[in-house]
Deep mutational scan, measured.
Amino acid sequence: MQRVNMIMAESPGLITICLLGYLLSAECTVFLDHENANKILNRPKRYNSGKLEEFVQGNLERECMEEKCSFEEAREVFENTERTTEFWKQYVDGDQCESNPCLNGGSCKDDINSYECWCPFGFEGKNCELDVTCNIKNGRCEQFCKNSADNKVVCSCTEGYRLAENQKSCEPAVPFPCGRVSVSQTSKLTRAETVFPDVDYVNSTEAETILDNITQSTQSFNDFTRVVGGEDAKPGQFPWQVVLNGKVDAFCGGSIVNEKWIVTAAHCVETGVKITVVAGEHNIEETEHTEQKRNVIRIIPHHNYNAAINKYNHDIALLELDEPLVLNSYVTPICIADKEYTNIFLKFGSGYVSGWGRVFHKGRSALVLQYLRVPLVDRATCLRSTKFTIYNNMFCAGFHEGGRDSCQGDSGGPHVTEVEGTSFLTGIISWGEECAMKGKYGIYTKVSRYVNWIKEKTKLT
């Protein structure tokens, strides 16, 4: 034993070699072989497995989906700052455009905790909710729209109204504003409101030439003092309507412009014939205590009207009353817009006519005020429907199939267009061939041609 100890002390290297040989010859039971080890760690190889990531292109799944990435790591994937920024906006807080917040056709661009709407022409605001041009839906104005110097929408209202708090709607500024039905039992019968379409306001006024200088022999019209197929109006439903009495009662109609003036057809009036105007009328054979009678003290036909040349060209006249009318729910003026808007309103496509005229061709006159909704007829169809001249200051309205029309005794009465609950004068009943005849239409004086003249002559002093 002493000898062994001496050998170990003198030859430590020998001992180490012996131990190493023993270990190498022993069977290893701690580690699995290569094949079995792979069965336990069965993990798919990654895209760049075996390579240094710093030297390969980034992978979106590896960089940002398996674990949260930084902007720089995302930049490695896209290799483009702009594309990385677009991805980053949604990656950080989701897609803010998912709810489609942009209105009126706006395009949404996502941002971090926010979004941006790219608005089409005519709109602005956070969600493109603000109209900035009158060309689109009248700028959301209830009545009139004008573009300011910086191309912003400025709404306005006709006389007797003021802008509401929203700067879009119009509200009454006087007790009985024009064009409004205020009798409670008839307010439910107000005709369907007309909503502004998209309009090209630059070209809204037709490029028409008034044929002022045409000389033409007097034409022989049949029954051209021209509501057939209409309905009984309720008291106060058309408070701007008046009836004219002269040699015979209810020979023509008219509309209240203001307390002192009536507008009617020029062919209705004769110099030297006494005319009485009755406002607030409903049943011409009954006294309903809503009527107001006034005498006409002055007749002003349009300066281009000449019955000797043509009885229905420039067929418009103004009547001055001896005493002002007292405005109330049964006696209310009709609204008159400017030339541009009167023309736009007419193009809405349908209007209402009213009167006490004959209820059928050569038949009896109506006792109760009649009204009828009539569609506008395109000019080409209008011209083809008659052998008589249709001037540019006239328009056609009615039904091709016949059966409904204005008729004798309705002449001078109103053709009105309702705009968001307020009625505007767009025409004056003038003439036609018979009444409600198939293929024939009622012919009306186009008020847009005469609004400046009306307003100039009827100013209240």
Results as ranks from 00 to 15, higher is better:
3 R>I: 11
7 I>F: 10
10 E>D: 09
12 P>C: 11
14 L>A: 06
18 C>S: 07
19 L>I: 14
22 Y>I: 14
22 Y>W: 13
27 E>K: 05
32 L>N: 15
35 E>R: 08
37 A>D: 04
38 N>W: 08
43 R>L: 10
47 Y>E: 08
56 V>H: 11
58 G>D: 13
58 G>M: 08
59 N>M: 05
60 L>T: 07
62 R>A: 11
65 M>H: 14
67 E>T: 12
70 S>Y: 06
77 V>Y: 12
78 F>A: 04
78 F>W: 09
79 E>G: 15
82 E>Q: 15
85 T>E: 10
85 T>S: 06
86 E>P: 10
90 Q>A: 11
98 E>T: 14
100 N>E: 08
104 N>W: 03
105 G>R: 07
116 E>N: 14
120 P>Q: 11
122 G>V: 02
123 F>C: 02
126 K>V: 06
130 L>S: 14
137 K>C: 04
138 N>W: 10
140 R>H: 07
144 F>W: 02
147 N>D: 10
156 S>C: 04
157 C>V: 01
163 L>K: 04
165 E>R: 08
166 N>M: 02
166 N>V: 00
172 P>Q: 08
175 P>M: 10
178 C>W: 00
179 G>E: 00
180 R>Y: 05
181 V>E: 06
185 Q>D: 13
189 L>W: 09
191 R>Y: 10
195 V>W: 09
196 F>W: 12
197 P>W: 07
198 D>T: 13
199 V>G: 11
200 D>N: 07
203 N>G: 07
208 E>G: 05
213 N>K: 07
216 Q>P: 13
218 T>F: 13
223 D>C: 05
231 E>R: 10
232 D>F: 09
233 A>K: 05
233 A>I: 07
234 K>D: 11
236 G>A: 06
240 W>K: 00
244 L>N: 01
244 L>Y: 01
247 K>G: 03
248 V>M: 07
249 D>K: 02
252 C>W: 01
254 G>N: 01
254 G>E: 01
257 V>C: 02
261 W>L: 01
264 T>L: 02
266 A>I: 02
273 V>Q: 03
278 V>T: 12
282 H>E: 03
284 I>C: 04
288 E>S: 11
303 H>K: 09
306 N>S: 04
310 N>P: 04
312 Y>E: 03
318 L>S: 01
319 L>H: 00
319 L>I: 08
321 L>M: 08
324 P>H: 04
324 P>S: 06
324 P>L: 03
326 V>C: 09
328 N>W: 01
329 S>K: 12
330 Y>R: 10
332 T>W: 02
332 T>Y: 05
333 P>F: 00
340 E>C: 03
341 Y>V: 07
345 F>R: 02
346 L>I: 08
349 G>L: 04
354 S>Y: 08
356 W>M: 10
360 F>C: 07
361 H>C: 05
364 R>V: 15
368 V>I: 15
370 Q>M: 05
374 V>L: 05
374 V>Q: 05
375 P>Y: 13
385 S>L: 07
386 T>S: 12
386 T>E: 07
388 F>K: 14
391 Y>C: 15
393 N>A: 05
395 F>S: 02
398 G>K: 07
400 H>S: 11
404 R>W: 15
406 S>F: 11
408 Q>A: 05
408 Q>C: 13
412 G>F: 09
415 H>L: 03
421 G>P: 02
424 F>W: 14
428 I>F: 06
428 I>Q: 03
430 S>G: 09
432 G>F: 04
446 K>Q: 06
446 K>G: 08
446 K>N: 09
447 V>S: 03
448 S>W: 02
453 W>G: 01
460 L>K: 13
